[in-house]
Design a binder for these strands. Structure first.
Lengths: 137, 137
DNA sequence: TCCTAAATAAGAATTTTTATTATTTATGCT
DNA sequence: AGCATAAATAATAAAAATTCTTATTTAGGA
């Protein structure tokens, strides 16, 4: 359980129970879509407005507290910003996981070939996770 | 100018003027969002329905004729399926470009570490293109 | 040329996202 | 601690994006 209050203050966002709730869900689950977030957070904040979620997610992305993960064939999910990493998605169970990958040399190479200056990247690998490989389902 | 009629037949889709129109736009522009496609294609098919675009894009993805590119901070774009490649997006002019990258060793490495079996990946590098680096704008 | 299943256009219906506004709340200041 | 004020929230409307429905048209095979 992290100190989300501090995290908000560090990013110059006012501390509200709703915001702490949002961050708690994200912290617990790792990656959450707006839809999922709305369902889950209503257990603690029954009358929370979906607009509050959209607005706060968008605020938190602006101040680099959250990052959007565009999931192939799925809805976007959001995660608390952490060290650079990539993602793996299982096509069967739809689980999304972080994975540490060093893309430095690849990025450097493409930058030199293309002349682009890159400051961000997103890599998502799609396949079947170990668990789903076992089941015949 | 490619033979889109053949391309459709090869994927067991009926050949209609609208479908050839969609593929022509995609072939010419490389990557197009639904919105852009609708604007452009109406020059040739004034009364085309947006539902026709959605439905056909979706059909063509099902039969692996098109692929969706999820653009960071932007709307999805669609491209005619071709050899595996990655993408570069310019944050200033929003241009999206293909780039050939070999991710084999990285994918293999992650697969071994994680136990996942991967059959697809999407890498998008974000930055500033050479052209936009020049202008002070 | 004709038949039939599929594709299209048009528009309705849903879903997703954003905007508006009255009320409530967090936070800095006394 | 209590107040003032700017910002956040809830509720709802509005807008945008996507999907569904249905009558009509069309592609492709017989």
């Amino acid at each position: 359980m992290k100190n989300y209050e501090l995290l908000l203050r560090e990013h110059n966002l006012k501390v509200t129970p709703q915001r702490i709730g949002i961050l708690s869900v994200l912290g617990d689950m790792g990656h959450v879509s707006i839809e999922e977030l709305f369902t889950i957070i209503r257990k603690d904040f029954y009358s929370i407005s979906i607009a509050t979620l959209y607005k706060n997610i968008s605020f938190m992305m602006e101040v680099n507290l959250l990052k959007e993960v565009k999931v192939p064939n799925g809805k976007s999910k959001y995660e608390i910003l952490k060290d650079e990493h990539s993602h793996m998605i299982c096509k069967k169970c739809e689980k999304l996981e972080d994975v540490k990958v060093c893309l430095d040399s690849i990025v450097k190479n493409i930058s030199e070939k293309s002349g682009y200056m890159f400051d961000d990247n997103s890599l998502v690998l799609s396949g079947i996770c170990p668990t789903c490989q076992k089941g015949t389902v």
